[in-house]
Deep mutational scan, measured.
Amino acid sequence: HNGKLCKLKGIAPLQLGKCNITGWLLGNPECDSLLPARSWSYIVETPNSENGACYPGDLIDYEELREQLSSVSSLERFEIFPKESSWPNHTFNGVTVSCSHRGKSSFYRNLLWLTKKGDSYPKLTNSYVNNKGKEVLVLWGVHHPSSSDEQQSLYSNGNAYVSVASSNYNRRFTPEIAARPKVRDQHGRMNYYWTLLEPGDTIIFEATGNLIAPWYAFALSRGFESGIITSNASMHECNTKCQTPQGAINSNLPFQNIHPVTIGECPKYVRSTKLRMVTGLRNIPSIQYRGLFGAIAGFIEGGWTGMIDGWYGYHHQNEQGSGYAADQKSTQNAINGITNKVNSVIEKMNTQFTAVGKEFNNLEKRMENLNKKVDDGFLDIWTYNAELLVLLENERTLDFHDLNVKNLYEKVKSQLKNNAKEIGNGCFEFYHKCDNECMESVRNGTYDYPKYSEESKLNREKIDGVKLESMGVYQILAIYSTVASSLVLLVSLGAISFWMCSNGSLQCRICI
């Protein structure tokens, strides 16, 4: 991952900044910058967002509201009850120091605090018919004063009620008058409520006091790749198909172990950190130390980045220098085999997901714990399936590479015959000098055995068991695999060879 928040398929997220979902939807004055928000790819909250409900109280069923919003990608904020005409018999300019803005008392931008007009609070009834052709999110509140005197001074009615009804919602609220500790300079409380109004449905408000009335509502448009994440990451000019709280993932790998919460087309989250597919040879310690064997393909974004291909070729060293050249036929066979294998694994496992966190309130801790156990169970199954699949494929890959290298080895052996000696570690020792032209003939299969047989015969008789390297004779190393990324691999195959001279070296080696 890149540690950044990015656009998702070209669409920017909605960053709530210092506000949370509650503050944004109710219209906390400190969240005025969010009022123009219309569309987004996903919503970003920060872990310690401080601006929620400015007048103390709870947004009821907040967790369910977050779940609903996680599939919303755009909205239209509109005046559901026009301020100047909807409440002619009531005062609608209630403000509070708890919702101060720029040093002055204020109130929510989407709600109206209705109080008595003169000395009376006549029963009010108002309704709205949803003609938007889509779901409408309606929010309101109920004020709970701290004393009967406060109730009387604001609403005149000691036994007030609030009723809200639609086809799918029907509740009646009565204020709970009680002494409470002071929070944000208030002994009173406000509880906030919401409902989704279906197209064509009607919502009716009736009250004799204590109503925090809707002013603006939201017509919602769903987008199934949307979601809500909690993150401290910063926004950058970048684009992605998959976003996590820790950063964007741009990967076609089937798995990731970065974060379980994802938005967009994302690899499946697994616990494993070692889900690797081999593309090189079986481990040979001396070669492995030099980083030549054991190439791997990573299938977990965050564990290993991208696929690494092994390729086969020849390396030689003689009086004229040293050089490398790919054996294109065996390399292409290996590439085709690995590509098919990788595609097979991805096809089997690479279903892209959006995974969002589930919200539970403080009273639902047991449910949250149960949900976590269920999620953990599914996660263990996914991890096991992934590891088992790759384990089985790896064994076949190792066998496949062994065969490829063996074929190259036999190709060289059949040409050199007794003009060189096998020394048991995949290397041959020449009994004759071999210049670049000679080396090329070994690589392309045109090695002239009779041409060098007499010199080889004489050297075999002279050496008589002495280690060949100390006599200045020449080696050919018969097994060799270097490691390159897919891009470098293609470039390498396009070149005939490249040279690395070893000044004054008397050794001649050709490596497979």
Rank of each mutant, 00 (worst) to 15 (best):
S231Q: 04
N232E: 11
N232P: 10
A233R: 15
S234K: 07
C238D: 08
N239M: 10
T240H: 07
K241V: 10
K241E: 04
C242F: 02
C242W: 08
P245Y: 10
P245V: 08
Q246R: 08
A248D: 05
I249P: 01
I249H: 09
L253Y: 10
L253T: 06
P254T: 02
F255C: 05
Q256T: 07
I258S: 04
H259K: 00
V261K: 10
T262P: 00
G264D: 06
G264W: 09
G264L: 06
P267V: 12
P267L: 00
P267N: 02
K268E: 03
K268R: 15
Y269A: 06
V270Q: 01
V270I: 15
S272K: 09
T273E: 05
K274N: 09
L275M: 10
R276E: 05
R276A: 08
R276L: 08
M277V: 00
M277A: 05
T279Y: 07
L281A: 03
L281N: 05
R282A: 03
R282E: 11
N283R: 02
I284L: 15
P285V: 09
I287W: 00
Q288E: 15
Y289R: 12
Y289T: 12
G291V: 09
L292R: 01
L292H: 00
L292Y: 03
F293V: 13
F293C: 03
A295Q: 07
I296L: 13
I296F: 01
I296A: 09
A297F: 09
G298K: 04
F299C: 04
F299H: 06
I300G: 03
I300K: 01
E301M: 12
E301H: 01
G302Y: 08
G303S: 08
G303T: 03
T305C: 12
G310A: 04
Y312Q: 09
G313T: 01
Y314R: 01
Y314S: 02
H315L: 14
Q317C: 11
N318C: 04
G321F: 02
Y324P: 01
Y324R: 01
Y324C: 07
A325L: 05
A326P: 04
S330Q: 08
T331G: 04
N333E: 11
I335E: 02
N336P: 00
I338V: 15
I338T: 08
T339R: 14
V342P: 06
V342S: 00
S344N: 08
S344W: 07
V345E: 05
I346C: 05
E347T: 08
K348Y: 01
K348N: 05
M349R: 04
N350M: 11
T354L: 11
V356Y: 11
K358A: 12
F360T: 04
N361G: 15
E364G: 07
K365I: 07
R366G: 14
M367E: 05
N369E: 10
L370H: 06
L370G: 08
K373G: 03
D375I: 06
D376I: 04
G377E: 10
F378T: 02
L379R: 09
L379G: 06
L379S: 08
I381C: 04
T383W: 11
Y384Q: 06
Y384A: 11
Y384T: 06
Y384V: 09
N385Y: 06
A386P: 02
A386L: 10
L391S: 02
L392E: 04
E393I: 05
N394C: 04
D399T: 10
F400T: 08
F400M: 13
F400I: 11
H401Y: 06
H401C: 04
K406T: 06
N407Q: 13
L408H: 08
Y409N: 05
Y409C: 05
E410D: 15
E410H: 03
V412Y: 05
V412L: 13
V412P: 07
K413Q: 10
L416Y: 05
K417W: 03
K417H: 10
N418F: 09
N419D: 08
A420D: 00
K421S: 00
E422K: 05
G426R: 08
G426E: 07
F428P: 07
F428N: 08
F430V: 12
Y431A: 01
H432G: 05
H432D: 10
K433F: 11
D435F: 00
D435I: 03
N436A: 08
N436R: 02
C438T: 09
C438F: 09
E440C: 07
E440M: 10
V442T: 07
V442H: 05
V442L: 00
R443L: 02
G445W: 06
D448Q: 07
Y452W: 15
S453L: 15
E454L: 15
E455R: 03
K457V: 14
K457G: 14
K457I: 12
L458M: 13
N459K: 12
K462T: 13
I463R: 09
I463F: 00
I463N: 11
D464P: 02
G465Q: 15
G465E: 10
G465H: 13
V466R: 13
K467I: 05
K467C: 03
K467Q: 04
L468N: 04
L468T: 15
E469I: 00
S470T: 10
S470W: 01
M471C: 05
G472A: 07
Y474M: 11
Q475A: 14
Q475E: 13
I476H: 14
I476G: 12
L477F: 14
I479Y: 06
I479Q: 08
Y480S: 08
Y480N: 13
Y480K: 06
S481R: 02
S481P: 03
T482W: 10
L487C: 06
V488C: 12
V488N: 07
L489T: 14
L489W: 02
V491Y: 14
S492F: 09
S492I: 00
G494W: 00
G494S: 06
F498H: 10
W499N: 08
W499F: 15
C501D: 00
C501M: 11
C501T: 11
C501N: 02
C501H: 01
S502C: 01
S502G: 10
N503G: 04
S505N: 12
L506G: 01
R509Y: 02
R509E: 10
R509C: 03
I510P: 01
I510C: 06
C511A: 10
I512A: 13
